[in-house]
């Protein structure tokens, strides 16, 4: 791993974002809209919270952490898409840049995107609703770490899909993650799901994170089991996503797909 090359590619995205107001605004638009709309809905529903004392915290915490997952995944996928859109992939692939360095740079970018958006959503949640995600203490960072890892895996997997199926598959970068949202237990516990869906939910790292988040918010102790499950699953998915990406790249070289990128 040559860190100079990783830094070089991160610099490329820094220049891109620095010079593009629409890209910067896109970072904030949906997270801010989401947290404003759902935050006010939550405040309205708070009058019925007798049965569920932590309703606001569950909901806003879920919303903020879901966005960590989403931004992490989009950060990696869009880093690849930016090269497709600018027809720059060939220049990168004929440079000494290794695929692992490309992925490392994409992960770095994803972390920056997550940090930028999360600071804003945390601030809005605190200023508008008096909710501080820091009530989760150190677990907030542990939850975020797990979601960033899951976002990386999904982002790498989606980049592989775009490499395999071409630019027509780019909408997956924004849509695929919502396929798992119903079973990711973001806003409700896994126990709410029908029995046949619960094993699916348990196979998703994010579901363990959100279950753990509710456990912490309820003051019900350290969610060790959930966190161990989340990180173990993340390790498996990350290895699988990398294997898929490398296999797809080898296949793209065999079939000459790299020459047709952007067509």
């Amino acid at each position: 791993m040559n860190l100079g090359r990783v830094r070089g590619l991160i610099l490329r995205y820094f220049y891109l974002y620095r010079g593009s107001l629409p890209r910067l605004l896109e970072q904030l638009y949906w997270p801010v809209v989401d947290i404003l709309v759902w935050g006010f809905v939550t405040i309205y529903l708070r009058q019925f919270e007798g049965e569920l004392p932590n309703f606001l915290a569950y909901f806003l915490g879920g919303l903020i952490l879901w966005d960590v997952l989403f931004r992490s995944q989009v950060g990696v996928s869009v880093a690849y898409l930016e090269e497709v859109w600018s027809r720059n992939l060939l220049n990168l692939f004929v440079s000494p840049l290794r695929p692992a360095e490309f992925i490392a740079a994409s992960m770095g970018i994803a972390i920056m995107r997550v940090a930028f958006t999360t600071v804003v959503t945390l601030l809005i949640a605190y200023l508008f609703y008096g909710f501080s995600a820091f009530v989760m203490g150190v677990w907030l960072w542990v939850f975020m770490g797990s979601l960033v890892l899951m976002g990386w895996s999904m982002g790498i997997f989606i980049a592989g899909l775009v490499m395999r199926f071409g630019q027509g598959a780019e909408s997956l970068a924004w849509g695929l993650i919502f396929l798992i949202q119903p079973v990711a237990a973001v806003f409700y516990p896994v126990s709410v799901l029908p029995g046949f869906l619960q094993p699916v939910s348990h196979a998703i790292p994010a579901a363990h994170v959100f279950e753990g988040m509710r456990q912490v918010l309820d003051g019900a102790g350290v969610p060790t089991t959930h966190l161990m499950a989340a990180y173990a699953l993340n390790a498996v998915y990350l290895v699988a996503a990398l294997a898929f990406f490398y296999r797809t790249l080898a296949e793209a070289k065999r079939e000459g797909r790299l020459l047709r990128v952007g067509e």
């Binding site: 040559n2 100079g4 090359r5 830094r7 070089g8 590619l9 610099l11 490329r12 220049y15 891109l16 010079g19 593009s20 930016e82 600018s86 027809r87 720059n88 060939l90 220049n91 990168l92 004929v94 440079s95 000494p96 840049l97």
Partner: peptide, 30 residues
């Protein structure tokens, strides 16, 4: 790292300046 390539038909990122593009590739080539 010891060869390079240029084609009229392979673009560099259009939204980056000339300096930014060359700076990025200088880093990639060490």
């Amino acid at each position: 790292s010891r060869v390079n390539f240029s084609s009229t038909y392979v673009s560099l990122p259009l939204r980056l300046t000339v300096w930014e593009n060359l700076r990025v590739f200088a880093a990639l080539y060490g």
